[in-house]
């Protein structure tokens, strides 16, 4: 019987591992297709393969795409910094203090999760234009994206920090650490992986956001809005090349992270 249950456990583990693998395949197949296509002459019908680097040469020459990439990065960074700061303060306060406002504040921080991108996009567009009289620009797009990203960041931080022992902060304070010093010396070194996770996720969400950014950027191009705009004439080859390059960077980053974890140089918050 014990042997039977061991087999069942192994089967379960293997089965769910397989599901995970299939999920990765499902998620990455279209991306692999995009990368494959970026090396082809014919973007619409890349079979059989006819390899060329044309897309990359075009990309190197195109200032519009450089600008769009830069804007996307800027938008992502600005929004991610805002999200991470706001979410860190929010999640720390909620986990650390027992206040009668705790529930209300948590609901407010989670609100943006319950509003679709599209709605965030159009409502901030109308609010900025009609009520504040502001045109769309990088700032308004950053803020609109950050509002949405804040609750993702908040959720991630809450979940990862739920087990943090806040009495460590008490200890630091008794031994003479002022609040900021205490954060820097004790809290931050322990919670930084949660902050990093929140930062990465909110960066990704803003970097390639179409529906919020589209309505709030005015005429400023970013990668997703330029893709949307070029739909009418067929997607530009530069887009494929850029996507391939971005994924290349991601792959390199992940490989580095993997190696750091593999050789236990940085544990990213994992405790054996």
């Amino acid at each position: 019987m014990a042997a039977g249950s061991r087999v069942a456990v192994a089967a379960y583990k293997g089965g769910s591992g397989l599901l995970l693998t299939l999920l990765y395949l499902f998620l990455y197949a279209p991306i692999v297709y995009v990368i494959y296509t970026s090396f082809n002459k014919d973007l619409i019908w890349p079979f059989p393969p006819d390899f060329t680097l044309d897309a990359y040469f075009k990309l190197a020459d195109s200032s519009t795409y450089h600008e769009a990439l830069w804007n996307s990065v800027l938008l992502g960074l600005g929004s991610a910094i805002l999200c991470t700061v706001v979410a860190t303060m929010g999640s720390m306060s909620i986990l650390k203090y027992r206040s009668r406002w705790r529930g209300l504040i948590a609901v407010i921080y989670l609100c943006p999760l319950f509003v679709a991108d599209l709605l965030v996009g159009i409502s901030s567009l109308l609010f900025n234009r009609q009520v504040l009289g502001l045109p769309g620009n990088m700032g308004s797009a950053m803020i609109a994206n950050a509002v949405h990203g804040t609750s993702f960041a908040f959720l991630i931080m809450i979940a990862q920090m739920a087990r943090y022992d806040w009495r460590l902060d008490d200890a630091a304070m008794v031994f003479g650490a002022k609040p900021l010093r205490c954060f820097w010396e004790v809290t931050l070194p322990i919670i930084w992986p949660a902050m990093l996770g929140a930062f990465i996720i909110s960066f990704i969400l803003a970097f390639n956001n179409l529906e919020i950014s589209f309505y709030n950027l005015g005429a400023i191009p970013t990668l997703p809005t330029i893709a949307w705009g070029s739909l009418r004439f067929g997607l530009g080859a530069e887009l494929f090349a850029l996507a391939a390059l971005v994924n290349g960077v991601v792959l390199v980053t992940f490989t580095i992270m993997y190696l750091l974890m593999r050789y236990r140089i940085v544990s990213f918050g994992h405790r054996d």
């Binding site: 999920l23 990765y24 998620l27 990455y28 197949a29 279209p30 991306i31 692999v32 297709y33 995009v34 996770g197 990465i200 996720i201 990704i204 969400l205 970097f207 390639n208 179409l210 990668l223 997703p224 893709a227 949307w228 739909l231 997607l235 887009l239 494929f240 996507a243 971005v246 994924n247 991601v250 992940f254 992270m257």
Partner: peptide
Amino acid sequence: LALAAPFFTGIILRVTG
């Protein structure tokens, strides 16, 4: 993070994919 990384590629390109 590997589940989040596909978002680095824009939605339009991914749907094309």
